[in-house]
Amino acid sequence: MDQHDLDFINSQLEGDIDLREKIKEQVHEFDKKTRTVVGLLNKVHGTTSDKIPSLLDDVRPLLVDCRTITASLAQLVPQNQFWRWKDMWSNSIRAAVFGAALVEYLGTGTLITVVKVNEILGIHDEWKDRLALPAEDYLHGLITLVNELSRLAVNAVTLGNYEEPIRISIFVKDLFAGFSMLNLKNDTLRRRYDSLKYDLKKIEEVVYDVSLRKLVAPPGQRPQPTP
């Protein structure tokens, strides 16, 4: 190879290595932040419903805090190379989606939209050739949400909250209907989607337990879930 070519190749390869190091640093930060979010949210399993709002108030600013990371990443990634680098932070972003979705569910009882996730994490639409939230990562985040909700259904009952499992059951069934519309490849998403069925089953068992023990009031007399 002539020296000029060799230099060109080397500079290109070293540029990539450099970039990888820089992204790694950001991902490291991202991980730290989402670990804190997940750690805090883990407390819902021992928190009675009246204290949930204050817990959510602690979490929300931490989620918004991720915006500095997403902005840095969007700046680092060269145009059109989003898919080249995204595997580096997909675990972090899935954790962030999960966090945002759980906050939304606990706050409003509804499913968070992609638009809302993007807004919370500060992901701008015009970055889409450098940083975006792909369907796959959003869906992974939702599956983690369901995993956690099935645990929550159990723990809510332990804490004496017999309404929560019913709310969770309705929410998860709807979500599951959405998932079953997808044609998935034999990949991680497929395997995790299969596992959803077990969560759904577990939630149904809790509902069954509380229903048959008449621990919930007949529907007409039940308080409405907070909007």
Binding site: L111, A177, L182
Partner: peptide, 23 residues
């Protein structure tokens, strides 16, 4: 008094319709 407010099923279906096409 089905809690209609939560991500009412139709919204979810609409959202996922979009994903299904994308995938």
């Amino acid at each position: 008094s089905q809690p209609q407010t939560l991500g009412s099923k139709d919204t979810v279906v609409q959202l996922f319709q979009h994903f299904a096409e994308e995938l």
